[in-house]
């Protein structure tokens, strides 16, 4: 169990490096969320505001670091990693796609349907 000290130093260094990344990204998100730059909120991309896309991408970026570094996925075998990551990515993408499509459809029905729901 006696690891050499150089290894210990590099592992701790990596932890603080990841902490720095997570902090900077969180601060960036909060700043963007407070000032809400007009050019980001006005630009639409694939049916969603550009700002929201940035938030989601930054979130996935953070999730990657938490899972890979803090949860040690980067040191697990390829098989275990894929069993976890591919399964969840596939199922979650499918679920999101199907529910958001349905939600958007219901919104259209409420808006343009013949039945008044706000009376």
């Amino acid at each position: 169990m006696a690891h050499d000290t150089t290894h210990e130093g590099s592992a701790t260094k990596r932890i603080w490096f990841v902490f720095a990344i997570l902090s900077v990204v969180t601060i960036a998100e909060v700043i963007l969320g407070i000032i809400k730059p007009a050019f980001l909120t006005d630009t639409m991309f694939l049916g969603m505001r550009l700002l929201n896309w940035i938030f989601i991408i930054l979130t996935i970026y953070k999730a990657y670091y938490i899972a890979w570094s803090f949860m040690h996925l980067e040191h697990e075998t390829k098989g275990l990693r894929r069993a976890i990551v591919w399964t969840s990515i596939f199922l979650i993408s499918y679920l999101i796609f199907i529910l958001l499509t349905e939600g958007g459809y219901i919104y259209e029905v409420y808006k343009s349907g013949h039945v008044a729901w706000d009376f």
Partner: peptide, 14 residues
């Protein structure tokens, strides 16, 4: 994910 996707569903609805 089920909860958050359901939240997204309701949000898209309203």
């Amino acid at each position: 994910s089920g909860f958050l996707a359901a939240y997204g569903f309701s949000r898209f609805k309203f």
